[in-house]
Every structure is written in structure tokens, then in C-alpha cells.
Amino acid sequence: MVSQVSFSLEPNGFVAIGAYVTALLLISPDAKSYQYAIADPYPFVMTLQSNFVVALLLSGFLAALLALVLSFPVFRVRGDYLAIVTLGFGFIIKILAINHPEVTNGSLGLNDIPEFSNLYWTGGLAIVAVVVVLNIVNSKFGRAMKAVRDDEDAAIAMGVNTFKAKTLAFCTSAFFEGVGGGLLAALLTSISPDLFDFFFTFQLLIIIVLGGLGSTTGAIIGTVLVMGGSEWMRFLDEPMNLFGYETTAMPGMRMVVFSLVLIFYYAFCS
């Protein structure tokens, strides 16, 4: 959810925060006691424990809190510079996760996360998120955000506190990215810093741009198109019979086709 023309390239960082918070709260002390291979965990890491709902909420709140702190430096710049600064922060979060094995188990990541996520949780929370976001968009704050999105200078002239509007949008999206990270951790059952690479953010960026920037409906349609499409294209990785030629399995072929489709769609259809 990026509601300004300046877009944040940081979702991977917030998703990572959410995923680690949920993972630390859900993994049983027993499972924690044997998986820290690089360094001994801090005592408080061993005592962290909660149920799934609390873990998800905490993931969201901590991500939003971080967004609040980061909004002070981030919103001093606009446009492309904002994209670059957020890209940098997202990367620094990943580096921090690698370098604090006492909490995150470093590059080995955390394993044996109980598998709480299922279609009801993820789908249900996605619906909740859409309802909440639509409510915000149609509120006073939402109108301020839209004004900033359409023309920041005009919004300033109209007396809109643009910093507040941007920070609210940033924190709201960080909250849902954190919750999404928690769901991801409880779906995959194991996480590591490499999961939260630039690739993750770029994928989200493709989704929202394809669906239409600043549109909530667009974000949903974009997700269905991109994720559905890339699952559908899995057959490309398998061995195939092309006009009588037997090809061998080529893992990664679907990403080649996906990126070509993306380039040609934008070059010739937009």
C-alpha cells in the first residue's frame, strides 16, 4: 500500500520485522534451545512466548513503531530520493538480522515455527486489512493522504499537514506488512535473512504498479495476477516436449518468461 507518488522500497524490512517477532513468539522454548548454533541466545529470547493473535498484533505494532521512528529521516526527502533512502533502510534491517545471531540465529535463520497460517487466517486477515484500509481512505486522514498523493504542494497550500498524512500512511502500511510477515513466518515454518531481500520488495512493487498505484482494488488484482501467474507458469520449469524436442527441466525458466512478459507488457501495452 503506497499512497504517494514517492514510493517506499522498504516493505522487505517491515515484513522481516514482523516475521522475526512472530517466529520468536511462537517457537517453543524446547525448539529454541537447540537451534541457536552461532551464538547463545539472550535470556529474554528464551522466555518470549504468546499465542498466534497476540504475536501477529505485536508484529504489526513493532513494524509500525519502527515506521514511525524512520518517518522522521525518511520524509525529509521526496520522490526518487525517498525510494533510495527506504531501499537503504530495508537493506540495513537485513544486515542487522544477519549480525545479531543472539536473537535471530544469524544467516541460519529460525526454524520449527508452528504452522498456524492457513487460507482462513491469511484470507481472513487480508479481508480485514482491506476493510480497515478502505475505512482509513474514506476518512479525514484518507482525504489528506489523497491530497498529498495528487499534489503535495497544493496540499501544503491547503493547510494539510503533509508530514502527518505521510507518516500515517507509512505506519499503516508498515503495520500490515508486519502482520503479513508474521503470517508468512507461520506459513513457511522457517525464515532466514535471505528471504527478505530486494527481490521481495521488487515483487511487491511489480504487484502494486501492475494493479495501479494508490488503488486498493488494484493491489488485490495485481496480487492475483502476479502470484497466480507465476504459480501457473510453473510448468515452464518442468521438462517439456516442444515440437518433438524433449527439453530437460530448467528451474528458473518461469522467471525468465515472467520478466519478458513484464517488459513487453509495459513496453507495448501501456
Binding site: L205, V256, S259, Y266
Partner: peptide, 24 residues
């Protein structure tokens, strides 16, 4: 083909070219 298009479309095709080269 995107000279007149919004900058964000250009950024997406740049990411597309990047993914293409890496994966190819």
C-alpha cells in the same frame, strides 16, 4: 517505448530487465 509514460513504469521495466538477465 516508455519515454512518455510515468516514471514508475520505466522503473518496473528496469526491474524486469534485471530479473531477466539474472534468471536467464
Amino acid at each position: 517505448p516508455l519515454r512518455e509514460a510515468p516514471k514508475i513504469s520505466l522503473l518496473i521495466t528496469a526491474i524486469g530487465v534485471s530479473f531477466f538477465l539474472e534468471n536467464a
